[in-house]
Write a protein that binds this DNA or RNA. Structure first.
Length: 290
DNA sequence: CTAGGATCCTGTCAGC
DNA sequence: TGCTGACAGGATCCTA
């Protein structure tokens, strides 16, 4: 579920808290959630934390790395008994009340803190990789540039090649990296583009605006510490607040469009729940809501 | 090669 | 209350 801003928020939180610490133990509670041999990383020290789109890579001593992808419902949470900020401010939802809990898949005991990998749906994973092969991992190898490093002309050229709905195109991590369902809807709303428009139908100007919108919504989100969902918490357990502060259409169906006052609608595009303003984002010819 | 749908899995919620 | 189906902030696999 976390998209680029959430993963970046976690990366920053982890960097200040676990750099240099040693993995004293690593317990796998769900075999599906951990790929590789745990014994090859126990005893290693944490040397760096990188992010590739929505994937996190923790580089260790002894030439190994842990690649983490949270997918829909993954979380990385600090042990509240060892982290003062967590104990002080975390919300009292059940899923945070006690750790480990039913959804805890991997427990990593570090020198000064315990890190829990929780994941309700088990789509996420932690994978051991030799550090020198991280860039060869299929997901990372195919990943496109992130919005800040992609040129508008390059983005436009890519969109020209696809007839899929623009929403499907920007969710495709090999076209542009980092957007998920929230930021896709928000970016399309900001640039007034209907999510069902064929990607190839966007003008060069529209592609430029969409790229700019993606940068804007995700930058804002990172600055506010990621977004809030029932299953998402920051690295220290506190909550992000993007949705309350900034989301204009996501999960706001039936409410007024903040730009024109029309009723925001929810439909299905590319198999995903999709929120948009039917007035600000005119539908393509012949399109009907599902 | 592209495009769309099914699929992995658990949990929640709306509707009967 | 109990059941059932839809759906969920992701990505891959399979099919046509």
């Amino acid at each position: 579920m976390p998209e680029l801003p959430e993963v970046e928020t976690i990366r920053r939180g982890l960097t200040t808290r676990i750099m240099g610490q040693k993995i004293e133990d690593l317990e796998v509670l769900c075999s599906k959630s951990f790929i590789g041999d745990r014994a090859t990383v126990v005893g290693s020290a944490i040397k760096g934390i990188r992010r590739f789109g929505k994937a996190l890579v923790i580089d260790l001593s002894e030439g190994r790395s842990l690649m983490i992808h949270l997918r829909m419902t993954g979380q990385l949470i600090f042990d509240p008994t060892n982290d003062s900020r967590y104990a002080a401010g975390h919300p009292s939802e059940n899923f945070l009340a006690s750790l480990p809990n039913r959804q805890t898949r991997v427990v990593i005991t570090l020198t000064n803190v315990t890190l829990f990998f929780n994941d309700q749906r088990k789509f996420g994973f932690i994978k051991v990789l030799p550090t020198d092969t991280v860039l060869l991992d299929p997901f990372i190898r195919k990943l496109a540039k992130e919005p800040w490093s992609m040129e508008p002309g390059e983005f436009y050229a890519k969109l020209q090649k696809h007839n899929t709905p623009i929403k499907a195109a920007i969710l495709d991590q090999t076209i542009i990296a980092g957007l998920g369902n929230i930021y896709a809807d928000e970016s399309l709303f900001m640039s007034r583009i209907h999510p069902a428009r064929p990607a190839s139908s966007l003008s060069e100007e529209e592609a430029r605006e969409l790229l700019e919108s993606a940068r804007t919504v995700m930058t804002r989100s990172i600055e506010s510490g990621g977004s809030t969902m029932a299953t998402y918490v920051r690295a220290d357990g506190s909550r992000g607040d993007y949705l309350e502060k900034f989301a204009q259409v996501f999960r706001r169906e039936g409410q007024k469009c903040p730009r024109c006052g029309a009723m925001i609608e929810k439909t299905r595009v590319a198999g995903r729940g999709t929120h948009y303003c039917p007035v600000c984002q005119p539908a393509p010819e012949g399109w009907k809501p599902q």
